[in-house]
Design a protein around this nucleic acid. Sequence first.
DNA 1: TTGTAAGCGTTATCAG
DNA 2: CTGATAACGCTTACAA
Lengths: 368, 368
Amino acid sequence: MATIRDVAREAGVSIATVSRVFNQTALVTDATAQHVRTVASRLDYWPNSAARSLITHRTHAIGVLLPDLYGEFFSEVIRGIDMAARREKYQVLVSSSRANAETIVAAVRALRGRIDGLIVMAPDADATAAIGDFAARFPVLLLNPGATAIEVGALSIANHEGAYAAVRHLIDLGHRRIAMVMGPSGNLDAGERNAGYRQARADAGIAHLPELELAGDFSESSGFQAAEALMRIRPRPTAVFAANDYMAIGLISALRDADVRVPQDLALVGFDDIAIAQYLSPMLTTVRVDACELGERAMQRLLPFARTRRPAEPHRETLPTTLIVRHSCGAQTPANGATVGSRHRPRGTRHLDDRTSAVRDGGAPGEV
Amino acid sequence: MATIRDVAREAGVSIATVSRVFNQTALVTDATAQHVRTVASRLDYWPNSAARSLITHRTHAIGVLLPDLYGEFFSEVIRGIDMAARREKYQVLVSSSRANAETIVAAVRALRGRIDGLIVMAPDADATAAIGDFAARFPVLLLNPGATAIEVGALSIANHEGAYAAVRHLIDLGHRRIAMVMGPSGNLDAGERNAGYRQARADAGIAHLPELELAGDFSESSGFQAAEALMRIRPRPTAVFAANDYMAIGLISALRDADVRVPQDLALVGFDDIAIAQYLSPMLTTVRVDACELGERAMQRLLPFARTRRPAEPHRETLPTTLIVRHSCGAQTPANGATVGSRHRPRGTRHLDDRTSAVRDGGAPGEV
DNA sequence: TTGTAAGCGTTATCAG
DNA sequence: CTGATAACGCTTACAA
């Protein structure tokens, strides 16, 4: 591997000049610059990043710390992060850890010195706390940290608003006995979605009924199991809000087995709008979260701080969600909506003021 | 940030000794070692990885180059890679690129000097070729490179065998007019799955019919569209093999809209066994690929070479696939298989000799 | 506009 | 077993 010295010697200049050419710093004659570049590419020279970062204290890499929970949501977030990183010529170092504080701290330590900034997806409350003091002296951006007191840069999803819109939609359709399948306890997104559910009930004057809140952990199988619990409730709920789409899928599957028709016997709304939501039967009404954009935005927010390696401002930002009305909620019947054209994924209109808007997907005749 | 000098001074030893303690190299008295460690942790010292890799020429990082196509399969592979990396204390640098040779070379260049080894998921043929000469002088492991002539370390999936088993299964159920929804042209996995399909037909004495091979690109929507083409074929096929599960989902959705019953009117088999395959209606018969294990194994294979930074041996290895028989193929009727217990995901028995085995999922009464 | 030279924080090679 | 000291490949004052 050629070094800066080889290039300098071969080009008949000093190593400082070569360095300048590769950093487009200081004034260098176009002629010499061109010459140096030619020699460099002939020698297949590329600056050694270790040597460079040893002196500049910059790595041009961003760390991404994920929970070991995976799935479409996370992979979309990474995709967004990667897209933004590539645009800005930054590398992405991914690392997963269990959500507990201990492993998070260990993961952060392992990343130390290798990154200029860190994006942490910490869906648990204690994980957020664990990262706190680190964030005070290093550029860190938290994804979905909930409403904790710690002062950190953060980006979250309008979970509360999204859930509120979903449940409100069910209420508007005439439902009163509306159950909810919860996410993992301790998970902040899940908690906020539950709060939105409760708020919507309260605002409609529907009493809080703890027995309508069924356990779940965001997995298909937990949705499947929740359906069994659901069917034992008397009087049986007429609608259910699942804290994510995967559980909604499990629910649909179990309900079908039990000959409970969706939406006729039980209306259903999910959360996330994963890619296959529109291919389910019935097509799933859900709250769209643009996970890819979340990742991109996180990178955008973090980069200015990463470049200067100063702690990120403790500013919080919330990404809007969109209620996507399909068939599982009963607002539209499968009969009039099943066309090929209805399978596209409209991006919907984003209203940044009210953080949850609604679009109708696949319903209106001629909408194709 | 404390440096090795600070620790040395504070501990009253030389920097060489501190270095030795942190590399558990050479003999150091337990007493001094202990003392140094204490001082180091008090100063919150951690070796600077840039300085370290500048002299050792090791980064303790592995690069992962992905196609920009994402989805459950890729995220599972990354998860496997990450698990193995964490075990071995290696970092993972992910980077995506379009599959074409040009962007791949650019991505590799950007990674140069930052990694000790590279895992490339290059589902396209020309991408594989692009990586060839780089692999001759650097530890590279290709995932699913197809049967190209280049001598590289590679890990692939038993695509041919899996597809063969799927189609053979349909033939054994009495089907003769079996269509296939293809993957993207140029995609090597897709090509091998098609070859398996053709081979199974040929071995059963069924003539090759080009019109039964429908275009697709691995997306749900392409499966949806393929269904329309499928239904125009006369005489209509009685079974269809989809090159992946996402397309199978699109197919199911379109067929339901057209009132074509699966499996009664049309039997269906997919490929990949994504998590929700067992929650579809009907439950999807498919060929399981353990994407997570693929990632883990890739890391295992690559690491010995990464440690020495010598090019990987041009050894090829194929991971077995398993036919998972559920309802969409018609071998089992939904009536007798729909129990809660059937929703677990049995790992199946792996027969390493014949690279595709079969398991029955959710059928046998009492299997729960 | 270009060159010289002093580090950056380690590890590795020798002596002791 | 421990300590000097020379690299590693680069950036960046400071000089010319």
